[in-house]
Amino acid sequence: MKLLRATLRSFAVQSAWNFERMVGVGIAFISIPLLQSMPGGPDELGRKAALGRAAAFFNTHPYFAGLAAAALAKAEVEGQTSEAIERFRGAVVGPLGSIGDRLIWFGLLPVSSAIAIVVAVLRSPVEALLTFLILYNAVHLFLRFWGVRVGWEMGIRVTEVFSRGVFRTMLRLAGPLAGVTMGIAIPLAAESLMAGWRPADMAGASLVGVVGVILIGRVFQQMDGLRFGLLMLGLTLTVGIAVL
């Protein structure tokens, strides 16, 4: 029951995101039900000290925050020294984030997004919507529920799970899969967005596309897709209104 409560809380782990402690307050938020089982009842000093430690600086991928919080809480409940806990906390903060970023932001998310675009073009908006939400959240929800469980089970030995074959395989596949699916999606998106256009207009859009790929990330450091788009569109509209 307390694991379920901790898992549900993990969905809001970034609500208190701040520059000073990043996701630390969120880790404490998840820990509260788990730390209840510390010896000495709800108002004991040990439990408060543990919660205080939980709220210190921490950063990780949000979907792995439950795993980290549960592992840290388990270490507290087991009575590990605060030095050992802080050492573990410091060591796990970066690598766990790295795994989450590569697996989710650079794997699952672009793959789901690209597949959804393909479905939208070949099938229908509603199917695209459902494909995206189901595919993405099957993995997402699994990670949230499994994370708290395995973190609580293994405590600070939890990092061992990442040496399992499944994780290694998924991490290795993430990049190539994202590349291939995005590669498929982009021409299909182009074709669907320009359906029925005159060839000259298509050529114009493609030219803007090529220029954009060359310019984004190059001209000045903050030239991202958003700024490129804003700049180009703003210019075109201004010139269009002024001249035509």
Partner: peptide
């Protein structure tokens, strides 16, 4: 034309 060109540019550079 420019909007869709920009979107394709952003998507491609994002993929890279």
């Amino acid at each position: 034309i420019v909007g869709i060109g920009s979107a394709l540019a952003a998507g491609t550079s994002g993929a890279i």
